[in-house]
């Protein structure tokens, strides 16, 4: 099955692309700034959204004062920039963390997702997936 470029980008980002697919994406990204921007947009949107399993302890934000940092309150709002140089872990409260996220305290800007997990039809599958 031939994949669209959008699907190829996702396959590369997911680490699921074949060597040939990686080469094709590389060729297009290197040759066409529009494709490079498309790759960048998807990477920022989807990889950034997913977060990291273990964030670095080095305070990136000290050197990147314009970078965003999401709060851990579940509202998804940004915290004031004055707090961005914080080097100690942000306080975490069980009541403010989603039960299925497995989110760990972190001091990095790249905090794990904090939004509530949907229950209902997908609740069972998601809960099972989160345990895996």
């Amino acid at each position: 099955m031939t994949r669209s470029f959008d699907e190829l980008i996702h396959a590369v980002i997911d680490g699921e692309a074949t060597d040939a697919e990686r080469a094709e994406v590389s060729r297009q990204v290197a040759a066409d700034p529009a494709q490079a921007r498309a790759f960048a947009r998807l990477a920022l949107m989807y990889v950034g959204k997913r977060g990291s399993t273990a964030s670095p302890s080095i305070p990136w934000s000290r050197h990147a004062p314009t970078s965003p940092r999401r709060s851990r309150t579940g509202s998804g709002c940004r915290v004031p920039s004055a707090r961005m140089s914080q080097t100690t872990p942000v306080r975490s409260h069980a009541s403010t963390r989603p039960s299925g996220s497995g989110a760990a305290p972190t001091s990095s800007w790249n905090v794990p997702p904090t939004e509530s997990v949907t229950k209902g039809a997908g609740g069972t599958a998601l809960a099972a997936a989160a345990k895996a």
Partner: peptide
């Protein structure tokens, strides 16, 4: 995942 030239283009695009 990307070749060096593509990585450079990706960095610029980001």
């Amino acid at each position: 995942s990307l070749a060096p030239e593509a990585t450079e283009a990706f960095a610029s695009a980001v």
